Computed example of a mutant assay.
Amino acid sequence: MHFGFSYVGLIFLIMLTVPNIFWTKNQPKDYERYVVNENKILLIFERAGEVLVTCLALIFSDFNIHPWSAWTLWLITAAVLMVLYEVYWIRYFRSEKTMKDFYSSLLGVPVAGATLPVSAFFLLGVYGKNILLIIAVAILGIGHIGIHLNHRKELLL
């Protein structure tokens, strides 16, 4: 692991953040009803994971593009997942913005809005051979994906 600025981490974080900024003005109908039921332990995992992933993605140069090797496939796969995440948001913003739209799957990936970026950052950690980011993403994933799955389950009841 090498300390240093990661422009790839910054690009991933921008791809993550920009749609979420637009989402604040385009939340799904009845979203407030579901937020109050969020599991507090999952929420702690989510918040801690968000802070850790954000910081770690920026402070290790291991995530930047290196000369081609087999490891480059991890970065390419992570980038594809982030592009799919953007596709998920485009589809959501063009929808009626219901809870069902927000917690939908994409290409068979359940709760795509949570699963795709978590998976992408996990693979970024693999690409950078950075165990700290991998652990941080696991913490984030437990909370973020867990919360999204619980909300989706509430929708089905």
Rank of each mutant, 00 (worst) to 15 (best):
L116M: 05
V83M: 12
S95F: 06
R47M: 08
W89K: 02
L42K: 06
V126H: 01
A112E: 01
V51M: 12
A78N: 05
V109C: 03
W74V: 05
A70Y: 15
S119Q: 07
V126L: 05
E86P: 10
F93S: 04
L123N: 07
G113P: 08
I41N: 07
L116F: 04
Y85C: 08
S61P: 01
V36S: 15
I65G: 09
S119K: 05
L132V: 13
P67C: 06
T77H: 09
C55N: 10
T98A: 01
I131S: 01
W89I: 05
L56Y: 12
Y34M: 02
F60A: 03
F45V: 02
V53C: 04
R94H: 13
K129P: 06
V118Y: 06
D62C: 04
I131D: 00
T54H: 02
L43T: 14
I59P: 04
W89N: 02
F60H: 12
E46R: 10
V51T: 11
K100I: 14
T77D: 02
N64C: 04
I65Y: 08
W74L: 11
L58G: 03
Y88P: 04
E38A: 09
I134D: 00
G49Y: 02
Y103W: 13
E50M: 13
M99G: 04
N130K: 06
I76K: 07
H66E: 14
A78Q: 03
E96W: 07
E86V: 14
V126N: 00
P67G: 14
I44R: 08
R33N: 15
M82E: 15
E86A: 14
A70L: 14
L133A: 02
N64H: 10
P117R: 02
V126Y: 00
T72I: 13
R47L: 09
E50S: 14
H66K: 15
Y34N: 00
C55D: 06
L56D: 06
V126R: 00
W89F: 07
V83P: 12
H66A: 13
V35S: 07
L116Q: 03
L58Q: 03
E96A: 13
Y92N: 03
I65F: 08
S105C: 01
K40W: 09
K100H: 15
V87Y: 11
L123V: 08
V111A: 04
G108Q: 02
E32C: 04
R91H: 10
I65T: 12
V35P: 03
G49M: 03
L123F: 15
V36H: 10
F93H: 05
Y34W: 05
N39H: 04
S95H: 06
E46V: 01
G49T: 02
L123S: 08
W68F: 13
T115Y: 08
F121E: 03
I76C: 10
V53L: 03
W71C: 12
L107H: 05
G125V: 00
F63Y: 14
V126Q: 01
E32P: 08
P117S: 07
E32S: 13
E50R: 15
I76E: 05
S95E: 01
F63Q: 08
I41K: 12
L106R: 09
N39W: 00
W71I: 13
F102G: 03
T72C: 09
F102I: 10
S119N: 07
K100T: 15
L84E: 12
S119M: 11
S95K: 05
G49E: 01
V51R: 11
